[in-house]
Design a protein around this nucleic acid. Sequence first.
RNA 1: GCGCCCGUAGCUCAGUGGAUAGAGCAGCUGCCUUCUAAGCAGACGGUCGUAGGUUCGAACCCUACCGGGCGCACCA
Length: 549
Amino acid sequence: MTPAKLADAVLSAVVSVFTARGLDTSVLPENTTVERPRNPAHGDYASTLVLQVAKRAGVAPRELAGWVAERLREEPGIADVEVAGPGFLNIRLQAAAAGELARTIVTAGRAYGRSDRHAKQRVNLEFVSANPTGPIHIGGARWAAVGDALVRLLRAVGADVTAEYYVNDAGSQVDRFAASLLAAARGEPVPEDGYKGQYIEDVAQAVLKARPDALSSPDPQAIFRAEGLRLMLEEIETSLADFGVHFDVFFSESDLHRRGELQAALDRLRAEGHVYEADGAVWLRTTDFGDDRDRVLVRSNGSWTYFAADCAYYLDKRQRGFDRVVLLLGADHHGYVGRLRAMAACFGDDPDQTLEVRIGQFVNLLRDGEPVRSSKRAGTIITLEDLVEAIGVDAARYALARYSLDSPIDLDIDLWTRTTNDNPVYYVQYAHARIASLLRNAAELGVDREPFNPALLDHPRESDLLKALGEFPEVVQTAAELREPHRIARYLEELAGTYHRFYDACRILPRGDEATTDLHRARLWLVEASRIVLASGLELLGVSAPDRM
RNA sequence: GCGCCCGUAGCUCAGUGGAUAGAGCAGCUGCCUUCUAAGCAGACGGUCGUAGGUUCGAACCCUACCGGGCGCACCA
């Protein structure tokens, strides 16, 4: 029996008690969940549903709990139900019902934990979107790891997701980039406000190689601009691909300009009545929808603001049919949230429904416990590629995805490069490799899984493992809905620990010339189920599940 | 000054109103003649920043304060 099915059984027991006693069923929720108590004395699962509804139903919680317990005990698969404390329901499953979960998981395979709950949702998830004026730095690496995991998670719950990268190829920073390349190609010092670093030199040379005529053309900077952007973007795509991150769309800001979408967005906002002119500039009255101050769309010199492009971009996404626009931004952009939400409202949308801005804290790099300064302009960036080279793709992705977005990450380079066994990802991967090895041995010994008697899985470590495996679907769903992939990593660490403890306490394969028993076979189901969930969870994070370590 | 985020074990961090608050790492004590010891067991370690409030119940929700990070352009 899965926790979800048990929760359904609890709810229907409550409904039937309410109906039988003439209580007001409208105070009941549409669905409920069961918890896994830490204390084994509190049963395999516990429900707090009675506590939540008793007061509004006008019944004493303990009395209501008693009625529900009586009804629940008749449910097949349930061994016992106790009323505890103020009205907790502590439920114990029959070993056979609990053990059946192993069959459920093995039968479902990779589909276990996945659902179509959000199948009707079309989501556009934009992340990284680093300026194409340099390589992806360590901060961008975090959004790449988290964003890609989120894409996988949302797809796991059935959402139709487009992973998108916004290429800021139209602003003045691109001019500075082009000017820096040109200067480097001419052997001149880069401009004061230009970009520094070896990569500028490299890209400049690459441009010259592709376009030997660049310096003698009528507008050299235009060539360095176009070619430089192309090369830089290529490099960014390559390092992301090496990191296992793929985007469905690289969306160019200059395309928005070229297609006149900024003007179209402005017209639309004007028609909605939120645009006015003052001091020679064109403003959007975002204060109508909670922003601190109104925002300029067209400067008094006639040029578009970056924000105007944001408006056009949002409108473009909506017109492409996305009903949910999700942005992953760094903490330095949190000041944008208010204006972005207000902008969506100015278009007539309800930002609570259509726009979601997730703010992530930065990655601080430490070397010997000292912060490492990372500045793109000064050329002292630590890039995604540096990180991968130092600690590998698996460790890097895992390290960047295992923390809450709200939490800044202190990544000590020396620690991560020096010690590999301190790394939690190995703990999880090792559990998978251990299982793979064991399954190879089982195959060699000719141990089969049939027949399966789930009632034999009644050892405490076996029950713990079954319970941990049973949590996976809800963890996936919660992680997807809250946009918090780190929950998957934390879950996997817990599952790996539970497996290691099971492995330590329970012999799985027959030793020496022992005969194969039904217990060996039953445990093999449990082991295979564990492998499936570990591999499935690691896949959601984009981390490999090795068969050997 | 205003806004957002954070404050939980020595360190790094989990914990979307439930029971005795957890994990990893560091440090201590044990466990490999047969399934991977990159593992396991045990002990140690806490006024959940402070003070109030909300309720059957608060690390979690509300208010104030303290401390830290990051933002507050006709820059991008």
